[in-house]
């Protein structure tokens, strides 16, 4: 596979995002607002209930703030355009080109995500005026955190791609989409750390679920809930999920491509 076209796709996606300037400000503004509100909520909850599951209040606020910052990059749903393209038939144009459409979408998502990552810097800087953030436990943890974010991105991308590819079979995917989004936001640890789930089978399932690879893995490493050798197994689990989702997504895509129905003349 030639890499050049995909580099170009990523570059164009990056500069395309740059043209929506007002969107950048509203994005950052909404993150800051949520950082403020969530820090209030967690502070109140901690005041009434005391420390939970071995996570101190400052660690919790760090967790919640970083989760909101990660939303900026995980929230890029580059695969979503596929659904529109299938729905109105312009997928035909992409399919007649000598490119792999999933990798085209990946490149486009990477470009968008790189642009979104740049928003993280001002968003992080401004958040520091609102809340106090703990530094990562060790330098190693900081590095592992970045790797885990990258792996989380891959898992998240393939999940989005799977959802978009289902459009090949059924256009009425909205309900399924909402359900997956709900389950994902619950089990990924983006809203509430999985450590707060009642210990037992549910918590075990949450930790074992692929969604945990998206938010829970990097954030647990950052706040030091996962240390030492556990970091390696956490990253390893992410790699496994990235691989499984990747295989499923590309397999589904191949199947879908074979029985594609192009809409419209």
């Amino acid at each position: 596979m030639r890499i050049r076209p995909y580099v170009e796709f990523a570059k164009r996606a990056f500069s395309r995002e740059g043209t929506y300037r007002t969107q950048v400000f509203t994005h950052i503004g909404s993150v800051l607002l949520r950082v403020f509100l969530l820090s209030m909520v967690w502070t109140a909850l901690y005041r009434n209930n005391g420390e939970q599951a071995g996570i101190t209040l400052p660690a919790m606020i760090t967790y919640a703030t970083l989760a909101l910052l990660l939303d900026l990059i995980y929230g890029v749903n580059g695969a979503y355009v596929i659904r529109e393209k299938i729905r109105e038939g312009s997928i035909a144009i992409d399919l007649m080109r000598p490119i792999s459409v999933p990798f085209y979408v990946l490149a486009d998502t990477v470009g968008q995500t790189l642009f979104a990552s740049m928003q993280i810097i001002p968003a992080l800087g401004l958040s520091l005026f609102i809340v106090h953030l703990d530094a990562p436990a060790t330098l190693g943890a900081a590095f592992a955190f970045l790797v885990a974010v990258l792996l989380g991105f891959v898992v998240n991308f393939f999940l989005d791609l799977i959802m978009a590819t289902i459009t090949f079979w059924t256009m009425e995917i909205f309900g399924v989409q909402l359900m997956v989004q709900f389950i994902s936001s619950l089990l990924s640890g983006s809203l509430v750390p999985l450590y707060f789930f009642p210990p037992g089978i549910i918590q075990q399932l949450a930790f074992a679920s692929p969604f945990a690879a998206i938010y829970n893995a990097p954030l647990s490493i950052y706040i030091g809930k996962v240390t030492g050798l556990q970091i390696v197994t956490t990253l390893g689990t992410q790699v496994v999920w990235a691989f499984v989702f990747g295989v499923v997504a590309l397999g589904l895509w191949r199947l879908g491509e074979r029985q594609v129905v192009i809409q419209g003349g």
Binding site: R2, R4, P5, V7, E8, F9, R12, R16, T19, G89, S90, A92, I93, M96, R97, P98, I99, G264, G265
Partner: peptide
């Protein structure tokens, strides 16, 4: 192959025409 669908364009909607060509140049090598 080359294809022209009168009903829908293969050019990139947001890009200037020239850049669509540049992108195609990369796509087709």
């Amino acid at each position: 192959i080359g294809v022209v669908f009168g009903q829908r364009t293969q050019l990139y909607w947001d890009l200037p025409l020239k850049e669509s060509f540049e992108l195609l140049r990369a796509i087709y090598g």
